[in-house]
Each structure stands twice: as C-alpha cells, then as structure tokens.
Nucleic acid binder design. Structure first.
Length: 714
DNA sequence: AATCGGGGGCTTTTT
DNA sequence: GCCCCCGATT
C-alpha cells in the first residue's frame, strides 16, 4: 500500500514517524487531516496495530465524521472498532461502560448548556438567591470554568471576597441537584472521566494497554482537563501524536490553553517536532499577507511561515466603505461579479450582529445565502420537550426531564403544585416522580391538582408500556401524539407553531434515520439516540445542494476553505473587538482570528471597513483595523471610497434613485475599463453620473452621457 | 395561561 | 436598534 504517495517530504516524515511522541505543527491548509488519516493507515499497515488499539480525538463531531469517512475510503477495512470522536464523545462512551465505577445511574442523561442554565436557575431559586445579583450566565461560567480546570467545589480556593464563597455554595448545590436527577453536564463528562481513570489504577492500566496509539487533532484547543486526560491514557509505550497550530488558537476565552503545545514538548519528552508549512490552499499573496499579519504576534511556538508552490495570485482588496450599508452593498455586488459558484464564497464577520445588513444587501440582489450557526435542531425547545418525555419513559427519576414537561403542554399542574412536589422531594430526599406519587397516595392535593397530576403520571406509565416494543421512530411518534404536544401546536395561531409542528415531524424522521444507521455503540438504541441528540446537536437540517454563499463568524470558519472570502468590519473596536483591546493576550488571539480568516481564502480575498458604522443605535467613527496596517502595502490594493457616496433612505427598502435609465447592480462594459457593475448614481439628465466598480480598474465615477457603457444582462 | 410592554444587555461557541 | 427575559395584566 503506497501510503506515502502524493505526500510532500514533511508530510511523509510525520506519517512515518516512529512510535514515540510526535508533535506536528501544521499550518493552515497544510494537509493536516490527510496526514492524520494516512498516519492511522500507516500504523495499521506498517506496525500491524489493530484498529481496536487506536484512539483518534478531534475537536468537533464534524471533524470526527470526516476522519472516519476518509479512513473508510483509504483502509477498505471496517473502522467500527476504532475509537474516533471528540473528547466528549469518547469520555461519554467510557462513562457508559463504567457507569458503576463512576457512580452514575445506568441511564444517566446529558445536560446541554441550556439545560444547565435551567438547572442553575432552579438551584438559585432553592437557595433564595436572586438572579439579578447572581446572573445565571455568570454562575454557569464560574462552574464550567472550575470544572474545566479540574476543580470540584470544595477544592476551589476561596478568595478574600464574599462572592466566591456564595458561588462555591451554588456550585455545590448545583452538583447535588445534578446527582439527584442523574444528569451530567458537558464539563462533568470530562471531569468525571478524568477522576474515574485517576482513581482506578486498574482501569487506567487497562486503557493504557488498549490504546497503543493516540492521535489528537487541534491540540491548541485542548483545555486543562483534556490535557490531563491524555496524560492519564498514555504510558511509555503509547505512540502519541498531537497535531496543532498555535497560530490558529482562537478559543482561549473558553478555557483552551495554547500553552499545552509547549507543555507537551516538556511533559512528554522526548518529542519529535515536525512542521508542515507548505500550503495547498491559497495564493502566495494571500499567504504572504497572513504571514505578515501573524508575524506581529509574539510568543509563537513554531514561528511557521506558510509557503506555496502555486501562483502569486491577485492582490488582496481593501475596500473603504462609507458605512456598513455601503460595505454590505459592496460585498453583494462583488459576489455578483464573480464567476465562481456561490457555494465557494464566504462572508466572514467578527460577531453575529453584523450579518443583518449583509443579508439585506444579498436579498436585494437576489443572492441566495445561508447563515451557519444559530439554534440547532436538537436544541430547539419543542424538540427538547419531546425528548424529555423519552427521558422520563426511560427513567422516571430524571428530575430534569420531569421539571421540563410536567406541565408542557399546559395540563393544569401549576407552579403551586410543582412547589409542593419539590418540597416533598426535598423532605424525603427522593425524586420528583416519587414525591408526586406519594402526594397522590396521601390525597393531600386539591382535587383538581390531584387529577391533573394523576393524568400526567398515567400518561408516562402508559407511554412506557405502549412503546416498549415499538421501534424508535414509532415511539417518538407516539410520544408526540399522546403527550399532547402535537395537539398543542396544531392550534397554530401563529406560524411559529406550525414550524414547531414541522420540527416535531422532523424529529420522527431523525429517529427513523438514526435507527437505520450502523452504529458501533454497545448502547441500547434509545440511550444512544438521546446521547446523540445532546452530544451531536448538529446543524439545523442541512438543505443540501442549493447554491448559496456562506455567512458565518470567523470562529465558525475555522477548518473551512472558500475560493473567495470577504472579511467585513475591519475596524478597531469591531475587529479587534473592543473587549479585547486592553489585554495583549486577548489582542493576540484576535490577530490569530484574523489569520484564520485570511487563510480561509483560496484565490481572492476582500477586506472591508466602514468609516461610519451604526452599532447599538449609535453612529461610531472607528479607525480602520490595525490588522489592515499590518499587511504589507505591496500585497494590497485599496479601493477608494466614492467621493460622494449615495445615501440609503432606509435599510429595509432599496434606495430610491432618480430614474436615469440604469439600475444599481447593472452589469456594464466600458471600452477601456472592461467589466464592471453599477454601484451608485448621482444627478439626472445630462449631468447624470454613475459610479461603476470595475473588476480591474476599481470604482470610478463616470458621466453617463459620455461613458458609452454597454449594458450586460445575463 | 397567554400576551403585552418595560428594562437591561450587548463577542466569539463546541460539547 | 434589537432581542430576550421577567413581571404584570387580562
């Protein structure tokens, strides 16, 4: 098998590295995934490792899926026995297998961040703390942050300040609630696995022996607990390869530690360090711009310099827009001018709020687009409601699920009754379900409340029996019907209710699809499906194959590539973000984010900034981003702001222009300037002028009467 | 139980 | 400027 074929020398070196420890510093677009996949194939074919002995960890489910796919194609043997997944996916698998040692109920469920917030809210209420003084988000951040650094509540150092004391109490109370409900949050998945392996030498030895080779992708994004996990799973015989790029570390704000890369070289010495710097994605101009930019950061580990054997390419275009509307219009018009399929173009921004103006401009020119990010399918409220019924059926003591659906849809179990159930559960140290049963037995509730509650308990019991032998999709269907969710949304007063109905139907389809797919899990179907829903929430249903441009944040763009990239909002306080300006460390991360953005582009890169930007209802005069100045002049091409930019009447309606026989967005040809597109018009009659953005010559104002333009209609 | 409106807030986000 | 959350109102 010619595994090294078609790889450059550095890539070959990495793929065929010895079985010791290897650190691969892989620049953007350097063929990192290919190296990882080939490496795994190499281990199997040249070192006779069994797929069972290989553990490959990625950062996202998408990356894991891609790796599995490519392995399947390359290896032509089943990859099912191999552990390929995210840290969370792999730890979850371990916890399921060893739930007893981990002191978890067999049917433990996973809390996503939304569930976690709800749980914290309940805990705060139980502790009589108001959410004004203790904002849920901050509490959540505190807890996750501590867990990510491996700290249990009692281990958190108390500072001299009172707030920490209270936060620790909340942390403790929250943890207790989770245990009682039999649920664990994302951070807990990692922390619990860490403790499990740490405190059980036998188990630890077992997995150290089993995993002869461990490969970790996106190593710069690992946090403290993930790093510690790698250490626990590794012994002196483990063939350990980590791949990362410190220049693309953009998740420091959520606990990722770039330092892990340096740390690795010392902790795991001796480490063979390799650099992948040949880029197969971008033109030389784009790479030079990226190199120059990132050169302004200090403390880089590899000091990599990307290079390409390919073309110099075009210069990077920098457009100075009058305002954010002008910027959006510029982007939309430039997209129209490209010959590339829409799919291969992306508009990247620092924050989601920036997408709006862009969307409006794209709509105006009838350019289909798709925004990446936003609420994902399994995170939708109605989906989670339906799944909560499933959870209750599986385990009635799931307090979190109980709270979620006891009165959804409304069935007359109001706040008062719920409070009584909670109080009883607390007094008897039992589950809400048991408490509800006792309250009914003792006949202490009002007749109305009692009958409503009884109906609910009966419903769940009934669903349990009724669905015992059904397949998953049937079961889902039954739940949606019997729970009243279907009926609840069928009233369809608003169209939002209708789409919720659609989503519930989609959930049945998702279940159908899930049970049809081959799985290597040793879990019951139902359990696996619930885990899939919280661990792999997935993008909202992918409408495949319709040609559209991509809109997303810079963060979301990591790992992707596009022929043409627009990077908008290149202004101080926007990008770099105002909130990162003070601290050098955070500023350096913003610069890396910019580096990520630039290196997404294959052939064309447009950077733009607005002289005036409306933000939070106020006009801001920001200076152009410092990142623009850090790009060498010889690589950039400035498009000058029009001398007198037209004004939009409103952002919603197309600008009203006096009719001079040419529309904005019209494609035109000029005898000397070539192809262009009309950006704006001014005046009328004999004095009418048009601003045309030419593909080659840039934007020019021309007197319509003399310009002799040819109108091009496709 | 649903709806309306006042008030605060406001990067980035995967699992 | 817009959205989300909460509380009060019907």
């Amino acid at each position: 098998m010619m595994l090294l074929e078609g790889l450059n020398q550095k890539q070959q070196q990495a793929v065929s590295a010895s079985l010791g420890r290897t650190l691969v510093l892989a620049g953007a677009g350097s063929g990192k995934t290919r190296v990882l996949v080939s490496r795994i194939a190499w281990l199997i074919h040249h070192h006779q490792l069994s797929p069972y002995g290989i553990l490959a960890v990625t950062f996202t489910n998408k990356a894991a899926g891609e790796m599995k796919e490519r392995l399947n194609a390359l290896l032509k043997i089943s990859v099912l026995g191999m552990w390929v997944g995210t840290f969370h996916g792999i730890c979850h698998k371990l916890l399921r297998r060893h739930y007893k040692q981990a002191k978890l109920p067999e049917q433990f469920q996973i809390l996503d961040s939304d569930d976690q917030a709800r749980m914290i809210k309940r805990v705060l209420a139980a502790l009589n703390l108001n959410t004004e003084q203790w904002p849920i988000k901050q509490v959540q951040h505190f807890i996750n942050n501590k867990k990510d650094s491996g700290l249990r509540a009692h281990k958190v150092p108390t500072s001299a300040y009172g707030p920490t004391q209270t936060l620790i109490q909340i942390y403790q109370a929250y943890e207790l609630s989770c245990q009682q409900a039999g649920v664990i949050d994302f951070a807990e998945i990692l922390l619990k696995t860490y403790e499990l392996l740490r405190d059980d030498p036998e188990l630890q030895a077992h997995y150290q022996t089993r995993f002869q080779a461990i490969l970790v992708d996106e190593f710069q994004d690992t946090n403290a607990i993930q790093y510690a996990l790698i250490r626990l799973l590794t012994n002196s015989h483990t063939a350990l390869m980590v791949v990362g790029d410190d220049d693309q570390s953009i998740y420091g704000w959520r606990g990722a530690k770039v330092e892990n890369i340096q740390q690795f070289a010392t902790d795991f010495a001796p480490v063979a360090i390799m650099h992948l710097e040949q880029n197969y994605r971008s033109t030389a101009n784009i790479l030079d711009a990226a190199n120059a930019l990132i050169g302004h950061n200090e403390d880089r580990v590899g000091e990599k310099k990307l290079w390409t054997a390919g073309d110099t390419g075009e210069k990077v275009t920098i457009y100075a827009a009058a305002n954010e509307l002008d910027e959006a219009r510029f982007v939309a018009q430039r997209i129209k001018m490209q010959t590339l399929p829409l799919n291969e173009m992306a508009i990247l921004y620092r924050s989601n709020a920036q997408s709006r103006v862009i969307e409006e401009a794209l709509l105006r020119l009838h350019i289909p687009y798709r925004i990446h990010g936003g609420v994902r399918f399994f995170e939708r409220a109605e989906i989670k409601d339906a799944l909560a019924y499933l959870r209750l059926i599986l385990r009635v003591s799931d307090n979190d699920a109980f709270e979620r659906v006891v009165n959804v849809p409304p069935r007359g179990i109001g706040e008062k009754t719920q409070d009584e159930i909670r109080a009883r559960a607390k007094a008897h140290a039992c589950s809400l379900w048991q408490a509800a049963e006792t309250l009914l037995d003792e006949q202490v509730l009002s007749r109305r409340a009692a009958s409503a509650l009884k109906q609910f308990l009966d419903l769940i019991n009934d669903l349990q029996k009724r669905t015992l032998h059904n397949d998953l999709a049937d079961q889902m269907h039954e739940i949606i019907q019997q729970s009243g969710l279907q009926q609840h949304f069928t009233k369809a007063k608003h169209d939002t209710a209708l789409s919720k109905l659609d989503n519930l139907q989609e959930l049945v389809n998702a279940a159908k699809q899930f049970q049809a797919e081959p799985r290597d899990e040793d879990l019951p179907l139902l359990t696996a499906f619930l885990a899939h829903a919280s661990l792999e929430a997935g993008e909202s249903q992918a409408l495949v194959d319709e040609a559209h441009v991509h809109l997303m944040t810079l963060h979301a763009a990591k790992g992707l590539e596009f022929g043409v990239v627009f990077l908008v909002g290149m202004e101080e306080e926007v990008f770099p973000s105002k909130l990162s300006l003070e601290e050098p460390k955070r500023l350096a991360e913003e610069r890396r984010l910019c580096y990520v953005g630039i290196t997404r582009a294959m052939t064309k890169l447009f950077l733009s900034y607005a002289e005036v930007r409306r933000l939070y209802g106020k006009e801001h005069y920001h200076r152009p981003s410092r990142f623009l100045k850090e790009l060498p002049d010889e690589l950039t091409h400035h498009l000058k702001l029009a001398p007198k930019p037209f004004k939009f009447k409103s952002s919603a309606a197309p600008a009203l222009q006096p009719d001079i026989g040419v529309a904005i967005g019209q494609k035109v040809r000029h005898v000397t300037f070539g192809l262009g597109i009309v950006l704006a018009t001014e005046g009328y009659g004999a004095h009418a002028r048009v601003q045309v953005s030419f593909e080659q010559a840039g934007a020019k104002w021309l007197v319509l009467a003399y310009a002799n333009l040819t109108y091009i209609n496709d």
